[in-house]
Nucleic acid binder design. Structure first.
Length: 606
DNA sequence: GGAAATTGTCATACG
DNA sequence: CACGTATGACAATTT
C-alpha cells in the first residue's frame, strides 16, 4: 500500500497541478498534506526564528508571485473561485494585504511599497477569494523546507488582514497595468525576484534530497525552469515587460512548483496512512484546521501567496503532460468521490471536472470543490465566471504565461494579450468584491466582451502547451511540424494541439464561409434590386414603345388615307377605300390593288 | 424569460 | 493518405 499510496500522491499532485491550471485549487490539497507532517513542527521553530529574514524574502517572492498572478491572473482567481464563495474571498484578501504591509515595512524599497499598494488595489478580489485558501495555506505551509513560502505566508498570518479586504476592488486595469510594468521594471524588484528565485532553488534543493520529487515532474520542471533562470540571471534588471514575464515565470516555477513537489512527496507518506479516497477531503480539512489552530504563528500567508504561487507555478512549470494523463486523477477521483473528470478525454475536451463552480460553503468548497474541481470547457468558463474571477485572471494569466514560455507569440496574440492585460485588474476586483452568484451570466458576457481566453486557449493553458494558439493554428504545416518537433509533448498535448489546429482552421473556415455566405446574400440582394430596376425600366420602355407604336400607326394610317385620296382613276374619280387598297412592294413601288383581287391573291398564295 | 443573432464545432465532401 | 477548405447542421452563447 505504501508505495502505491505514495504514487497516488504524486499522481494526485500532478493532477492537482492540472486542476489548478484548470482552475481547481489543488494547491490546497497539496498544502494540506504537507502541512500535516512537517509544517507545524518545523515551520514553527524555524519560521519564528527566522521570520524576519524570511519575511523579506518571502514577501519579495510573494510580490513576484502576486505580480505574476496579476498579469496572468490565472491562479489567484482560481483558488478563490474553486474554493469558494465570498466569505472565503474576504478572508483571503486579508492575508495578501498583510503580506503587502509587511513587505513595505521591511523597507525593501520605496518601490516595493508602491508595489504593495498596487497589489492591494489590483488583487482585492483575489485576496478575498483567497480567504479559504488562507486556511489551506496554513496547512500547506508546514513543510519545513518551504521556508520561503512559509515565511511569505507568515506575515499574512501574523498580521491581520487589513487593507485589501476592506478596500473595494478597484478596476484600474490600465493604470494598474502600467504601474505593474513600472514596478517590474524596477531594479530592486527584479533583484528581489532573482533573490527569491535563488533562495527557492536552494531550498528546494535541500528539500529534494529527503524525499523528493516525483521523477516525472522534476524533469519537466527543470526543463522549463532552467531556461528561465538563465534568462533571469542575464537579464537581472532591465526592462519591464519582457523581464516582467521572465521574472515571473522564473520565480514562480522555481519557487512554487518545487516547494510543492517537495512538500507533496514528503507529506505523501503520512497521508498514506490516513488517506483513503473517501476520507481524503476530510483528512485535508482536519489537517488544515489543526495546523491553523496549532500553528497560527506559522506562515500561512499562502492563502494568497500559496495559492497564487501554486497556480502560478503551474503555468510556468510545465508539469509533464504524461503525468497529467488522467489516470492518476481517475484513481484519485474514485477514491475521493469528488468529481474529477479526465481533463482531456479527447483532444477536444479541455478539461472536465466539474466542480461546483459555486462553492457552497467556504471551507468545504475549499477542500472539496476547490481542490477537486475539474473543469470542462464549459466548466472552465464557469470558473471564470465564478465568484472570483478566476476566469478573468485565468485568461489574463494565461496570456502572460504563454508568452513567457519564450515562444514567439503571433502579433495577433500579443495584441490580444495587451488588450486583456488592462482588464485583468478590473475583472477580478469586481467579481471578488461581491461576487454574486448570479454573476454567471454577467461574468461570461463581460468576459467575452472583454475577450477572455477562448476554450482552446484555456485548454492549451491547462495542458501547458508551450505554443500560442495562434501559432498552433496559423503556422504553415512545415513550420508547425518543426515547432512541434522541438518540444516533447505527451499524447494529450499532441492531441489537443491537433484539435486546436483543426478547430482553429475550421473556425476560420466557418467564419469565412459565413462571411462568404453573407456576401453572396448581399450580392444576390443587390442583383435582385438591379433586376427589379431593370424590369421596371423595361416595363416603362415597353409602355413607351407601345404608345410610340400606336402613334406611328396613327400617323401611318393618316398618311395612307391622304395618299389614297390622291389616287384617281382614268376618269379622274377617286377609288373607293373599301374596294381598293394601296400595296407597296419591297422595291418601293406602290400598287393599287382591288380588295377582291387581293383576296384572290391571298387565296392563290395559300 | 424568450426569441433572434452569433459563434464554435462537428461531420462530411471535395480538391 | 494527410491536409486544408467549404458548408450544412447543431449547440452553446450572446444580444
Amino acid at each position: 500500500m505504501g508505495p502505491t499510496l505514495y504514487m497516488d500522491v504524486d499522481l494526485i499532485d500532478i493532477l492537482w497541478r492540472q486542476d489548478i491550471d484548470l482552475g481547481a485549487g489543488r494547491e490546497v490539497f497539496d498544502y494540506c498534506h504537507r502541512q500535516k507532517e512537517h509544517e507545524l513542527q518545523r515551520q514553527r521553530v524555524q519560521e519564528e526564528e527566522k521570520r524576519q529574514q524570511l519575511l523579506r524574502e518571502q514577501e519579495k517572492a510573494l510580490l513576484a508571485q502576486l505580480q505574476l498572478d496579476e498579469e496572468t491572473g490565472e491562479f489567484v482567481p482560481r483558488l478563490a473561485p474553486s474554493s469558494q464563495s465570498p466569505q472565503s474571498a474576504t478572508t483571503a484578501a486579508s492575508p495578501q494585504v498583510t503580506q503587502n504591509v509587511s513587505f513595505t515595512e521591511d523597507g525593501d524599497a520605496m518601490s516595493f511599497d508602491e508595489c504593495m499598494q498596487l497589489l492591494a488595489e489590483t488583487f482585492p478580489l483575489v485576496e478575498a477569494t483567497a480567504t479559504a485558501s488562507v486556511c489551506l495555506d496554513v496547512t500547506v505551509a508546514p513543510a519545513p523546507n518551504s521556508n520561503h513560502v512559509m515565511a511569505c505566508e507568515l506575515p499574512a498570518l501574523t498580521q491581520p488582514p487589513l487593507l485589501p479586504a476592506s478596500q473595494p476592488p478597484q478596476r484600474t486595469s490600465p493604470d494598474l497595468e502600467q504601474a505593474w510594468m513600472e514596478l517590474l521594471s524596477l531594479p530592486e524588484l527584479q533583484q528581489c525576484l532573482n533573490m527569491q528565485m535563488k533562495d527557492t532553488l536552494d531550498q528546494t534543493g535541500g528539500y529534494l534530497p529527503t524525499n523528493t520529487t516525483p521523477e516525472v515532474q522534476d524533469p519537466n520542471y527543470s526543463f522549463y525552469t532552467l531556461p528561465n533562470l538563465a534568462e533571469v540571471a542575464s537579464n537581472a534588471a532591465e526592462v519591464c515587460p519582457p523581464e516582467f514575464i521572465n521574472a515571473f515565470e522564473e520565480s514562480f516555477p522555481n519557487m512554487a512548483p518545487l516547494d510543492h513537489l517537495n512538500q507533496m512527496t514528503l507529506k505523501a507518506p503520512d497521508l498514506n496512512t490516513n488517506f483513503s479516497a473517501a476520507t481524503f477531503c476530510d483528512v485535508f480539512y482536519q489537517d488544515i484546521v489543526n495546523t491553523k489552530v496549532t500553528s497560527v504563528t506559522l506562515p500561512c500567508g499562502q492563502g494568497n501567496g500559496g495559492n497564487s504561487l501554486a497556480e502560478i507555478s503551474h503555468k510556468p512549470t510545465f508539469t509533464p503532460m504524461e503525468l497529467h494523463d488522467l489516470s492518476p486523477r481517475e484513481a484519485f477521483d474514485r477514491g475521493n468521490k469528488t468529481e474529477i473528470m479526465p481533463e482531456f478525454p479527447d483532444s477536444d475536451s479541455g478539461v472536465s471536472v466539474e466542480a461546483s463552480p459555486h462553492a457552497s460553503s467556504p471551507e468545504k468548497s475549499m477542500y472539496g470543490d476547490g481542490s477537486f474541481g475539474g473543469y470542462s470547457d464549459s466548466d472552465m468558463e464557469e470558473m471564470d465566471s465564478n465568484p472570483e474571477s478566476a476566469e478573468s485572471d485565468y485568461s489574463e494569466m494565461f496570456s502572460l504565461s504563454f508568452q513567457p514560455d519564450g515562444f514567439q507569440t503571433s502579433p495577433s496574440v500579443s495584441a490580444q494579450q495587451q488588450d486583456k492585460k488592462p482588464k485583468h485588474g478590473k475583472t477580478e476586483p469586481d467579481e471578488e468584491t461581491g461576487h454574486n452568484d448570479p454573476p454567471f451570466t454577467k461574468d461570461k458576457k463581460r468576459r467575452r466582451s472583454e475577450k477572455r481566453l477562448s476554450r482552446d486557449e484555456q485548454r492549451a493553458k491547462a495542458l501547458q502547451i508551450p505554443f500560442t494558439v495562434d501559432m498552433i493554428i496559423n503556422l504553415p504545416v512545415d513550420d508547425f511540424n518543426e515547432m512541434m518537433s522541438k518540444h516533447q509533448l505527451n499524447e494529450a498535448q499532441l492531441a489537443l494541439v491537433r484539435d486546436i489546429r483543426r478547430r482553429g482552421k475550421n473556425k476560420v473556415a466557418a467564419q469565412n464561409c459565413r462571411k462568404r455566405k453573407m456576401e453572396n446574400i448581399v450580392e444576390l440582394e443587390y442583383d435582385l434590386d438591379s433586376l427589379k430596376e431593370e424590369k421596371e425600366r423595361l416595363q416603362r420602355e415597353k409602355t413607351k414603345n407601345y404608345s410610340s407604336l400606336r402613334q406611328m400607326k396613327q400617323e401611318l394610317n393618316t398618311l395612307y388615307l391622304e395618299v389614297f385620296s390622291l389616287v384617281r382613276d382614268e376618269e379622274g374619280k377617286p377609288y373607293s377605300p373599301s374596294e381598293y387598297s394601296l400595296q407597296q412592294t419591297t422595291d418601293g413601288t406602290v400598287f393599287l390593288v382591288p380588295r377582291i383581287k387581293k383576296m384572290l391573291f391571298k387565296k392563290n398564295d395559300n
